[in-house]
Amino acid sequence: MKQKTAIQEFLKGLWDENPVLVSLLGLCPTLAVTVSAINGLAMGLAATFVLLCSAFLVSLLRKVIPNQVRIAAYIVIIATFVTIADRFLAAFTPDISKALGPFIPLIIVNCIILGRMEAFASKNGIGRSLLDALGMGAGFTLTLLVLSSIREILGSGTWFGLQLMWPFYAAWKVMVLPPGAFLTLGCMIAAANWINTRRRS
């Protein structure tokens, strides 16, 4: 297989191997926290932070960690960074921490992170791993941002708290409820597949 260029390594996470729309990973936080754009963004950034740090460490230690216990080691590394992120959010932005609730600690079991560690960071150098993590994180964050924006605009008529729709707009409350998350995500995945099919043919 041809080695990807650095820029390709980064870009693949945005669309071709988008963790949510293509790999369907990390759906639990994706569906649960995207009630408002700010939540989506915070979740995406927190996950990206954990992804980057873990990718760095795992890539660094990839020759040291014995194969048999690699998953355990990754989990410990990821859990450490997740806890760091969680405590920082709780200490400095308590409101967001409260809104994201248990989903920040649950980044530990976010399949995107473990998946990238196992599939990429443990097999590649630090530079490539960081680029990959950054791409994946950016893809995750962007997808969450789009998803949460759609839900916030339709469901509350606002975007990042700003009144966006006309004043007498009747908000679709269902969009901020769990069914709205499934509907929106379903439509987004359908749209992504549709675009990909068209592009290929």
Partner: peptide, 10 residues
């Protein structure tokens, strides 16, 4: 059901 979830007041 969609309407009920969207516009519970109306």
């Amino acid at each position: 059901a969609f309407l009920q979830a969207s516009f519970p007041v109306k």
